[in-house]
Design a protein around this nucleic acid. Structure first.
Lengths: 224, 224
DNA sequence: CGGCATCCGGGAAGATACTG
DNA sequence: CAGTATCTTCCCGGATGCCG
């Protein structure tokens, strides 16, 4: 039976009462944390998850979702008619894993081996805004930006020294940016020109927004 | 050659510019983060690492240490004579992974499936103090506690609403606790009597110290 | 004994093809 | 579209053995 496989973890686990070890048992398997990342802005369908994680094959995704459902990270839900499709969503507790993702990302951005030119999913891009936002640089600026990555759109709001990002319609934004997550990252973090982006509305707002972020310095690798 | 194996990650990696994904490439392999945890309080020898991670076999530990050295997490160092033994130590950057360990532990402690009766290493115990310390509960208390787990000893200091824990001689402590990490955890987090512990010095200081910690409430597993 | 290489069995990951 | 079935490849973990 399938349930046995999910719960029979004989030998493969850490036998360690440390919370960190238990955390690794929950989200330490390959791909699991990236699935959490992709669900962080709301439910997704099986196929959408596959599309945003190109290296992940269908059978492994099935296994991961089963395991995550069994440990209470994820719920499988049917959208109400007329959609009537099945989606996967994080539980409240699963969504509370965001600080882990943030800390991991913040730390790894300092790695000498980090290659920022690889593909980037929309959810990654939005999460990185939350992680890398520098309230000191933003001061008391207030702005609302829309981002459209193909069919997915997000609204990012800066106000009172904090930043929020949500999946939402870009209707009321001061400026709307259309393009790929990679192009947005290259502009905001790379400091280059806004190549490959279509910008509708108050362009200078986006320019100012880009000044609220700075990649941390690379770590020296050979220091003890 | 061996170096090729370490760097040839073709196909097995995430191809994702997100910092989180890169972080998983660095510390996402099985055991890696637990090795970091064990080194968090200072260098250790190969055999000491094995002893504190019972499920980890020698060949896998060798592979992990090689990978961690290659990515700049760990340095291999020879202690000066007369010790003249080889030890592994975290780099500064490697030590900065502590927030990841903390967040993961804090989050996982809320898991319904967490079993706090499993074995616990001294380093885990000390890290959990750093993670779970509640400054509000400590107020302006000041104290210095020594912990002796077999050959390893630590000093924990509470002062000014913050807690520090280091590997150090227990000489100048107000109270010294001798026993197993499991017994300490059971007393501090479980709220039971101090069974299996020998307490030298001001017993009431340890009692008060235990009041500075509280496990967070378990998460509801079936909520979206 | 500490550190590392080698061999082997079991199992997880990845690719592809297939089904409702 | 949402998975399942199958097959291959590679990793994990245990045992053994080699050198200092």
């Amino acid at each position: 039976m399938k349930l046995e496989k999910v719960t029979d973890r004989s030998g493969r686990w850490y036998d360690d009462a440390c919370g960190t070890a238990h955390g690794l048992e929950l989200i330490g398997e390959r791909w699991t944390l990236l699935v959490v990342r992709e669900l962080m802005f709301g439910p997704k369908r099986f196929g959408d998850l596959r599309a945003s994680l190109p290296g992940l094959s269908a059978n492994v995704l099935t296994q991961r979702l089963e395991g995550m459902e069994a440990s209470g990270l994820v719920v499988r839900r049917k959208l109400p008619p007329p959609a009537s499709v099945q989606v996967y969503d994080l539980t409240d507790w699963g969504r509370e894993a965001e600080p882990i993702i943030s800390e991991l990302g913040r730390w790894a951005a300092r790695s000498p081996g980090h290659d920022p030119t690889l593909p980037l999913s929309p959810a990654s891009m939005m999460l990185s805004f939350r992680t890398m936002f520098d309230a000191r640089k933003a001061g008391d600026a207030e702005m609302r930006l829309g981002f459209r990555f193909g069919p997915e759109s997000f609204v990012v709001e800066v106000a009172g020294g904090s930043l929020t990002a949500q999946r939402a319609d870009t209707g009321e934004a001061d400026v709307v940016i259309l393009g790929s997550p990679e192009a947005v990252a290259s502009f905001v973090y790379g400091g280059g020109p806004p190549e490959g982006l279509a910008i509708e509305g108050r362009r200078e707002v986006f320019q100012g927004f880009a000044g609220f972020f700075e990649l941390p310095p690379k770590a020296e690798s050979a220091r003890g």
